[in-house]
Amino acid sequence: MQQVTNKSEKITSFEFARVIALLAVISIHGQLFMDYGYIGEEPWLNFITNQAARFAVPLFFVIAGYLIYPKLNASPYTTAKNYSTPLMIIWFIWSLICLALPFNLGVVAEHGYLAERTGYWGYLMQAPLNSLFEGGLVHLWFIPSLVIAVFMIAWFVDNKCRSLMLPFAVIFYIYGLAAGSYNVLTEMETPIFTRNGPFFSFLMVAIGFEARRHQWRMSVGKALLLAAAGMAIHFAEAYYLHGHGQVFNLNDFLLGTSIWGAGLMFFLLAKPNLGKHPIWLSLGKWVLPIYVIHLLVTIYMTNIVAILGVETVAADAIVFFGTIIGSVILMFIIEKTPLSFANLRRIKFGKNKAACREA
């Protein structure tokens, strides 16, 4: 690993990678290949593709940490506030929207809107603290987790103890693993899912932050080797834990996941012009809005599949491609309203209004 000088120009490979990562997240939430590709009595095609897509969120986090470094290092709390305010406004508004919109149209048709919604609200209230860290729909956990990680890094910067940041982040990560996927072995309990809060996000954002601070780089070959090693460790852990009762496709992060995400970041830094095309730069700025919107669209695509009685490959195609197309259309419609993501990003941001785009 060698040091290089900072570059001010946009890292186009990051924009390209964020779009690919978004597609990976959509594939996870679309639950592709669940009805076929079985080995024995288990959907191994889903298990493998689901976990293969788990690079996505770690990559979002490390890229965010890398991009926010200059401002966060120079003005920690001011930057953290400016960065987080529009994100949390987006999270709050879309949590309310997700709490209001019905998910199961069949229940609405048979029993009415309130019956469908009260069932969902009751489900959230079974774990109110976890729901607070998550929001109105499960995928929104990403935003408060990112915000918490940014403020934690700001604390280490402000107190001039940056060298302690990664060790503490590793401790949080290991605790999150022990009480998360490794719970089947440790039997440790926490009041929130350890994917939420700082357990996952702190280390990944800190890796990106520290890579920028120390100007770390790797060659393409070494970065790919690191990413491949991390992916292999992740899959080995998932297989081992599956034998002890942790279902293979329910692992949000494992020990190897952080190595996997770091390796991919170093690969993208070694290939900064990867995806250097106007289309990827244009799509990159819509990653956050589509991420926020997409799961609602996935839910309604699943309703459509159920109404049509479609199964297997056709059902997956409708859900996956319908989510992509529907999310893009819905995003452009929303951009014409007061709830425009562009408008929300400008709230209380002043000169720092571009910072939210680094999320």
Results as ranks from 00 to 15, higher is better:
287 V>C: 03
245 G>Q: 04
345 R>Q: 11
202 F>T: 00
325 I>Q: 01
310 V>S: 06
207 I>Q: 08
256 G>W: 00
322 G>H: 04
301 M>L: 03
29 H>N: 07
202 F>G: 00
214 H>Y: 09
334 I>R: 02
248 F>G: 05
144 P>H: 12
334 I>C: 01
324 I>K: 05
47 F>N: 12
324 I>E: 04
200 F>D: 02
223 A>F: 10
114 L>I: 07
26 I>Y: 04
91 W>H: 07
38 Y>A: 13
299 I>E: 08
258 S>G: 06
41 E>K: 14
163 S>M: 07
59 L>R: 03
85 T>C: 13
355 A>E: 15
87 L>G: 06
79 T>S: 02
272 P>M: 07
286 W>L: 15
287 V>M: 04
315 A>F: 07
111 H>F: 10
349 F>P: 08
355 A>F: 15
286 W>Y: 15
286 W>D: 10
92 F>D: 10
271 K>G: 13
82 N>Y: 11
211 A>M: 09
354 A>G: 12
13 S>R: 08
166 L>F: 01
71 K>I: 06
114 L>S: 06
65 G>T: 09
39 I>W: 15
175 Y>K: 00
55 F>M: 03
256 G>V: 00
108 V>L: 05
319 V>P: 05
328 V>F: 05
51 Q>E: 14
229 A>S: 14
168 F>A: 08
160 K>S: 12
42 E>H: 13
316 D>A: 07
353 K>C: 08
329 I>D: 04
223 A>V: 14
189 E>G: 06
271 K>V: 15
18 R>T: 01
358 E>M: 14
343 N>Y: 05
55 F>K: 03
356 C>M: 13
289 P>Q: 03
284 G>P: 04
52 A>S: 13
153 I>Q: 09
272 P>R: 04
214 H>G: 03
315 A>L: 06
136 G>H: 13
10 K>V: 09
59 L>P: 03
40 G>E: 08
71 K>G: 06
256 G>K: 01
44 W>T: 04
60 F>D: 05
78 T>I: 10
105 L>N: 01
115 A>I: 05
270 A>D: 03
170 V>E: 00
297 V>Y: 02
18 R>S: 01
50 N>A: 11
211 A>R: 04
75 S>M: 10
140 L>C: 09
216 W>C: 03
123 Y>N: 10
55 F>Y: 08
237 E>F: 03
118 T>W: 13
146 L>Y: 10
253 F>G: 02
195 R>I: 10
258 S>T: 06
48 I>Q: 02
208 G>Q: 07
276 K>S: 15
268 L>D: 15
53 A>C: 14
1 M>A: 12
213 R>V: 12
95 S>L: 09
88 M>E: 05
359 A>F: 15
109 A>P: 01
190 T>D: 02
116 E>R: 01
351 K>E: 12
269 L>I: 09
37 G>Y: 11
223 A>E: 09
76 P>S: 03
319 V>A: 08
38 Y>Q: 09
194 T>S: 01
130 N>Y: 01
70 P>S: 07
72 L>K: 10
345 R>F: 13
170 V>N: 00
355 A>D: 15
